[in-house]
Every structure is written in C-alpha cells, then in structure tokens.
C-alpha cells in the first residue's frame, strides 16, 4: 500500500494523473454538453411536431368553421327547419284599430 502511494506521489505520476483528470473533465464536459444539446434538439423537434399538428387541426377547424358559417350552408339549414326566405315574408297591413297601432 505504502509502495503504491509512493508510486502515486512521485511528481511524474502525479502530473500524468492531473493531466488525465483535466482531459477527463473536458471530455465529460463535452459529452454532457453534446448530450444536452441533442436532448434539446429532440425536444425542439417534438415541440415542432406538436405545433405542426396543432396548426393542421387549427387550419382544419378554420375551414370547417368557414363552411359552417357560409351563407349557402345557413340557407340550407334554415330551409330544413322550414324557415321562410326573407323575400317571401309578407307583412300584414296593420289596421288603424289594431291594439299595436302606433301611439
């Protein structure tokens, strides 16, 4: 054990260990940085996909809303409900004796 420590504590070995440690730290730092970067990129990609999906469904909803609010569709629906077209509405003439006659 003491021999091992002696070997370790010689100046030459110590220098090599220090160098190896520094190299190791830089390497580990780089690996961590790169991993973090890749992880970040994946997350960004995932979010991008989500945004794209949301945009797609938003666009589809926008188109559906446009179809649903088109006057053609509204007329079709109102005719199915047997509503009369405004042009075909005939107003009754208000008689002068009507209780709703103007004041």
């Amino acid at each position: 054990m003491s021999l091992l420590l002696k070997i370790l504590y010689t100046q030459k070995t110590l220098s090599i260990v220090i160098l190896a440690l520094i190299f190791g730290i830089v390497l580990v730092g780089y690996v961590l940085l790169a991993t973090n970067n890749v992880r970040g990129e994946y997350r960004v990609e995932e979010l991008k996909n989500k945004i794209m999906e949301t945009e797609k469904s938003n666009n589809q909803l926008r188109i559906n809303l446009t179809y649903a609010s088109s006057l053609e569709y509204i007329l079709e629906q109102s005719s199915m409900l047997l509503y009369a077209e405004i042009e075909n509405v005939k107003y009754l003439k208000k008689s002068s004796t009507s209780p709703f006659a103007s004041r």
């Binding site: 100046q11 030459k12 220098s15 220090i18 160098l19 520094i22 190299f23 830089v26 730092g29 780089y30 940085l33 970067n37």
Partner: peptide
C-alpha cells in the same frame, strides 16, 4: 529535465484543451 518536460507537456495540454473548449464555446 523531467520536471521541465512535464511542465512543458502540461502547459501544452492545457493550451490544447483550452483551445478546444474555446472553440466549442464559440461554435455552440
């Protein structure tokens, strides 16, 4: 002589590591 070599090697190593780190920092 041995100390000198080690010191030179150490300085060289630090410089190279520093340069790589600086380059990484610059690029990333």
């Amino acid at each position: 002589n041995s100390n000198k070599r080690i010191t030179t090697l150490f300085v060289l190593f630090v410089l190279v590591s520093g340069a790589i780190s600086a380059r990484l920092y610059y690029l990333q």
